[in-house]
Structures are given as structure tokens and as C-alpha cells.
């Protein structure tokens, strides 16, 4: 094939040009990702194996000492436990509520627009504003909750101030904030399910609950997986309300990992231990990413 060989240099020049354009198009994004993702990840790793520098003693390599300090610190285990409870409750509860909301918002209800809007509204509020609104509920003696329970003769409760209820109060705000957001994804998925499926199931004599369990839930599995990953990430990320509601107290009972990182770095200026803790969080998030890519996400074509 003489023509093909004659074209070859042109084709290879074209390929090189193509590669050059590709890199040029990516360059701005790559520079920013390097500055605010790759380099900080690297410096976090480095800082995590160096001692905390002081004016007299400069920071030096100390191996796994920062990590050992963390593991020896009872606060670490408290905070870890808090975050596990936080994740363990907010994830299933907000997913279940989101599904319920979507099933209701998908039905032909009177005032459906209002119902959908009400469920979704918390999503567009800043977490700080949400915390302020809930503060109004929780204020001991004066808050809405105590005013209502007071009608039944119950004593006032310091919801945010006592260790037994504080984390629960914080969790309620998170669930309130994210359930409506997750509802949207279920709503979208429900609208792709053909209505004949339901009719067929009902003709076969299946009750609504059977239809939900045997037909809807399996079909919604990919959506549930997607929401689960998002909820998992949120259980690390959503901590803004702590700044208003509890500041991690009382007695560290509402301190979550990211809040503790912030506190270590910006209140105690302990960059070394904050870095070690950050590395642990990055490891967990990396594991979540692997889970997502390898196990849950066979629908997306990354290539």
C-alpha cells in the first residue's frame, strides 16, 4: 500500500499535534489541581511524619510518632466513635427518608408541588443557616421543642448541652438537611421505571409492599449505591453546624473528625497531628473511591 506509507509522516505529525493540544487544554486545570490537591496531599504526608516545630526546636522527621500519639489519645477514639455513630445513623436514616419522600412526591397527590418543594427546601439553605434555625428548636426552656413538651408537663431539656442528647440533636439537623437532596435522585430514578411494570405486578396479584420490595428496590439499587457514596462522603464533610450548635462539646461528645482537624490546626496550631489525622481520613476516602470504582460503579464507562 504505497499511499498509506506516503501518508504516514503526516498522520504521525497529526497525532503529535493532537497530543499537544490535549495537554494544552488540560494545563490550566492541572496547574490548579497540582496547587490545591496534589501538592497539599504530598505536604500532608510529609508533615504527618515530622514533629511539630517550635521557635526553639525546628520540625524534624519523627517517623510514625504523630500517628502513635493519635492512637494513644483517648480523644481520638471518642472522635472516631462519634463519627462512626454520626455516619451509622445519618446514612441509613436519610436514605430511608429520601426513598419515602420520593415515593410520596412521585404520587399524584393534591398539592404535590408544595410537598416536593418542602422536602427539597433544606437542601438550598447554608448549613450555618440550618443550624441557626435548629438552635431555635433546641434552646433549653425557651426552644420550640421544650415549649411543646412543656404543654404535656415534661421538664425542659438542654438538648445540645448534655452528653446523652447532643450528638442526636446534631444528627437530626444533618438528616433534615440531606434527605431532601437524596430524594431528588430517587425521584429521577422512579420516573425512568415504566408504569406497565407496576400494572403487571398488580395484575399478578402482588400487593404494593411486595411490588416495592421485589420490583422497585432492586431497580433502584444503582441509585441507592450512588446516594450511599454521597451520604458517606457527607458524613465526613458536613460539620458546619457544629460551629453554631455545639463546637464539639459537651465533653467532646459531638466532636467529628473534620472539626477536630480544624481545631487542631487553627486553634492549637498543631500542624503535625492535624496532618496525621488528615492522612487517616484520606486513606478512608481513598478506600471509598476504590469501592466505588471497583465494585459499585459498573454502569459508568470511564474509558
Amino acid at each position: 500500500m504505497p499511499t498509506a506509507r506516503a501518508l504516514d509522516p503526516i498522520a504521525s505529525r497529526q497525532r503529535r499535534l493532537h497530543a499537544l493540544y490535549g495537554w494544552m487544554l488540560l494545563a490550566p486545570a492541572l496547574i490548579l489541581l497540582t496547587l490545591f490537591a496534589f501538592l497539599p496531599t504530598a505536604t500532608t504526608l510529609i508533615a504527618s511524619v515530622h514533629s511539630r516545630g517550635t521557635a526553639r526546636r525546628p520540625s524534624m522527621f519523627n517517623g510514625a510518632e504523630n500517628y502513635a500519639d493519635l492512637l494513644a489519645d483517648p480523644t481520638f477514639w471518642t472522635v472516631l466513635g462519634n463519627n462512626l455513630v454520626y455516619a451509622g445513623i445519618t446514612i441509613p436514616v436519610s436514605i430511608a427518608l429520601a426513598l419515602l419522600m420520593a415515593l410520596w412526591a412521585d404520587r399524584h397527590l393534591p398539592l404535590r408541588g408544595f410537598v416536593r418543594g418542602a422536602y427539597f427546601t433544606p437542601t438550598i439553605l447554608p448549613m450555618i443557616a440550618a443550624a441557626n434555625l435548629w438552635l431555635f428548636f433546641y434552646t433549653p426552656g425557651l426552644g420550640v421543642i421544650d415549649s411543646v413538651t412543656g404543654l404535656f408537663g415534661l421538664p425542659p431539656v438542654n438538648w445540645l448541652g448534655q452528653p446523652q442528647t447532643a450528638l442526636g440533636a446534631v444528627i437530626a439537623v444533618t438528616v433534615w438537611k440531606e434527605a431532601g437532596f437524596f430524594m431528588i435522585f430517587y425521584l429521577a430514578a422512579l420516573q425512568t421505571i415504566p408504569p406497565d411494570l407496576k400494572e403487571a405486578a398488580l395484575v399478578e396479584g402482588a400487593g404494593r409492599l411486595t411490588y416495592l420490595r421485589r420490583v422497585l428496590l432492586p431497580l433502584l439499587m444503582p441509585t441507592t449505591a450512588f446516594i450511599f457514596i454521597n451520604a458517606l462522603i457527607n458524613s465526613v464533610k458536613l460539620i458546619d453546624h457544629l460551629f453554631i450548635l455545639t463546637k464539639g462539646g459537651p465533653n467532646n461528645t459531638t466532636k467529628l473528625v473534620l472539626y477536630w482537624i480544624w481545631e487542631m490546626a487553627f486553634s492549637y496550631f498543631d500542624r503535625a497531628h492535624a496532618a496525621a489525622l488528615t492522612v487517616l481520613v484520606l486513606a478512608v476516602l481513598g478506600a471509598v473511591a476504590v469501592l466505588q470504582f471497583a465494585v459499585l460503579d459498573k454502569r459508568i464507562h470511564y474509558r
Partner: peptide
Amino acid sequence: FSFPGREALFVLVLLQLFILPEVLIVEN
């Protein structure tokens, strides 16, 4: 565009869906 290293770069970008800017606050 196809160029060497594209797939690896794309995986690095996707990883940012999980490695949130929030977590890197100290070094950022």
C-alpha cells in the same frame, strides 16, 4: 483528544471526587 497518560490523568481527576478540598484545609 488522545495522548499518552490520558487515562491515568483522568483517574487522578476522578479521585478528586473523593479527596475533597474540605479535607485538605490545613495544607491548602
